[in-house]
Amino acid sequence: MALLYVLPALLPYTLFAVLPALHTAYLSLFDWDGVTLPSFTGLDNYRRVATDPQLRAAAWHAGALIVFFSVLPIALGLVSAALVARRSGRRGTSLIRTLLFLPQVVPLVAVAVIWRWVYAEDGTLNQALRAIGLGRLTDAWLGSFTWALPAVGLIGTWVVAGLCMVLFLSGTQRIDQEIYEAARMDGAGPLREFWSVTVPLLRPEMAVALSITVIAALSSFDLIYITTGGGPGNTTVVPGILIYRLAFGGGAVGLAGALAVVLTAVISVAVVVINRLAKDPS
C-alpha cells in the first residue's frame, strides 16, 4: 500500500533518473563510439580518468568554482541577512527578497548570454571602467588566460548569492528577537552579534546552502559552455564540459560515462560530508 502512494513519484524518477544513471555506469565499462558495437574494457576508462592531465586540470577548476559558487555567496548572504535581521521594522523585506531571488528565475543559458555581453571587449563592464577613468584596466575578460575562470565564477556568485540570502533571511526570521536584545543588553556590538547569534543559529540553513551550491559548482556546465566553452586554451574546462565533449563530439562514450560516475561519486561524498558537519553540535 505504501508503495502505491509513492508510485506516481517513484515511477518517473526510476525511469528518467535512476535507470539512465545505471545505464551510464554500465556504459562506462565499454569502449564505445556511440554508434558501432562496443568492446568491453572493464575498468580501463576509470584508469584513464585517474591519470589524464586534462581531467585533473578540470577537477582543479571545479574546485576553484566552489569558492565562487559557495564561499562567496554564503558570506554575502550571511552579511546581508544579519543587516536585515537587525532592522527593527521589517518593511521592504519581501521586496528585497524578490529582487535578490531574480537571478534564480532566469534560465542559466540566458544568464550566460547576458554576461557574455557584460564581459565583452566593449561590454558593460569595460564601459563602466572607462566611465570612472579606469580604462587601462579593461580586458576582454572571457578571453583572458588570467581572468576567464574568475569571470565565469563571478557569474555563479551572482546567480547563487540571491538564493543564499533568501535562505538566510527566512532563517533569521526564525531567530527570536529576544536573543538579539539579550545580546545587546550584554553589550554585544553588531560584529559580536553576528558571530555569536546569527551565524550559529543559521547553521541548518548554511548546510542547505552549502549542499546546493557545492553541487552547482562541481556539476557546472551550461554557464561555461555558453560563455567560454572551456577556453581560452583549457583555462575554464570543467568535468561537465569534458563529459559533453567526450560523449557527443569525441566518440568516447565509455570514458565520458566513467568521468560522469566519478563526478557523481565525488558530489555525493561532498554532500554527505557537509551534512555530517552540519549536524555536529560542537
Partner: peptide, 19 residues
C-alpha cells in the same frame, strides 16, 4: 579526427594568447 574541432580551438587560443 572527431576531437579536432575542440583541439584546434583550444590550441589556437593558446597560440594567439602567446602561451
Amino acid at each position: 579526427t572527431p576531437t579536432m574541432p575542440d583541439t584546434l580551438t583550444t590550441q589556437l587560443q593558446l597560440l594567439a594568447g602567446g602561451k
